[in-house]
């Protein structure tokens, strides 16, 4: 009878530790399921828009589905440790749970659209840093309202509140 609470205590402690590890990973936002090397892909001649498709015509610059990764990796470069992990996800018919790096907090009430920025010939690196030199994408540029407004003013884009906040 006395021994009974012990395993319960240790399992709850284990749960607490594992939860804090997961929460820590989410907070940092950099704990990706696979150490994705952006630099290697850019060096191989892959454009940002090839994987993050839709950015030029729609609001969101999507995170690619595993189908897109496997378009190439089914045949090419399927030896490395990262790609092996990818293929594991693929064989289990699962998406890779990539973590988003950039997002506006909900309280900002901002509705951002990529397409008009790409049409205005703003380089991806202007807001996302030099991802071509990064392995795992890091948050290189802070997206504050100052960042947005100063660029909007320099390029004579509208600085009306209703352009972004609605």
């Amino acid at each position: 009878m006395l021994a009974a609470p012990r395993p319960r205590l240790s399992s709850s402690r284990l749960l607490a530790v594992s939860l804090s590890v997961v929460a820590g990973g989410l907070l940092w936002g950099q704990q990706q399921p696979i150490e994705f090397p952006h630099d290697k892909h850019v060096a191989a001649g892959v454009d940002c828009i090839d994987c993050h498709s839709g950015a030029d015509v729609r609001s969101a610059a999507t995170i690619p589905s595993i189908n897109k990764c496997m378009l190439c990796h089914e045949r090419l470069a399927n030896e490395g440790p990262g790609v092996k992990l990818l293929i594991e996800f693929w064989n289990r018919k699962r998406e890779v749970p990539w973590q988003r790096v950039y997002r506006f907090e909900r309280a900002a009430n901002v509705k951002f659209r990529h397409a008009p920025h790409i049409r205005a010939k703003i380089e991806c690196s202007a807001c996302h840093g030099n991802v071509a030199a990064m392995t795992v994408a890091q948050k290189a540029v802070e997206h504050t309202m100052g960042t947005c407004v100063s660029c909007h003013r320099q390029t004579q884009a509208s600085d009306d509140c209703a352009v972004c906040h609605f």
Partner: peptide
């Protein structure tokens, strides 16, 4: 809340 150039009476929620 303010009037923008297009005559919309805009409400800025985060302000």
């Amino acid at each position: 809340t303010y009037q923008n150039a297009e005559g919309l009476n805009v409400q800025v929620y985060n302000r």
